[in-house]
Amino acid sequence: MTSQPQTGDQDVQLAEGGRTVYRRPLLLSNPTSYCPGCGHGIVHRLVAEVLEELDLGHRTILVGSVGCSVFAYDYLALDAVESPHGRAAAVATGVKRYRPDKVVFTYQGDGDLAAIGTAEIIHAAARGERFTTIFVNNGIYGMTGGQMAPTTLVGQRTTSSPLGRNPATTGYPLPVTEMLSLLPGVAYAARVSVASPMLVGKTKAALKRAFEVQLEGRGFSLVEVLSTCPVGWGMTPTEAMEHLATDVAAVYPLGTWVDRAKGVAPAMPLTMEAAKAVAGPAVHPADTAPEA
């Protein structure tokens, strides 16, 4: 497969001296049907751009999830498999273990990943599965009509917390990225946001880094993207972006939690060094498998 051009539509002849300043990524196939102001469309576009720039479109498998992004496979021109609600990390484990030479990523919402799918994501991360998870956290169950999620902010009104989320009975927002960053199997973990063009640029950089980490076979890589759901939040698109930039960011700090190759990692209960000292270095089957 030849490398695709970085800019410009292949079909359009530029006038002399012309310069392309914008085009759809080639991997973005159909216009999305998300609500106005929804963050999913932005994240889709970034994924398409990053895979295109890394020239990975022809060897990537998307593991979908159940949520508003269930039709991601209609928008991204990639091989794709659907997962039951919450099980994307298990499905991706199956795909990646059988095809370790392919690039595999899950695309999951916060209901999917942080509620019904918590066991699967924790254990995929703990095993250091060599795929990437794109975790779009909009703090709500968008698809089913805006119910409370484990990620919903304290006090936030949703259709299933009509008086606002009460931490006394429903707990506090689940800090998934911080929690997973404690696991030695996690090679990269970052929280980013789509609240401004500058932050969108950072999101793209994080996605790129996550895929690079996967290509290097370093372990599990996670990008939590703070995103909007104007419909579920009962806001206009503009209000939703402002809310994301302020109130949401205050609860969910942005940053790179883990980038092991670059020496970024929090103190862990059990460090990889301690584990290795006991058991010796781990050898991944994908690194020793006989040539097929």
Partner: peptide
Amino acid sequence: NMALGAAAA
């Protein structure tokens, strides 16, 4: 679900 993924692959 791992089986689902591997079978799809």
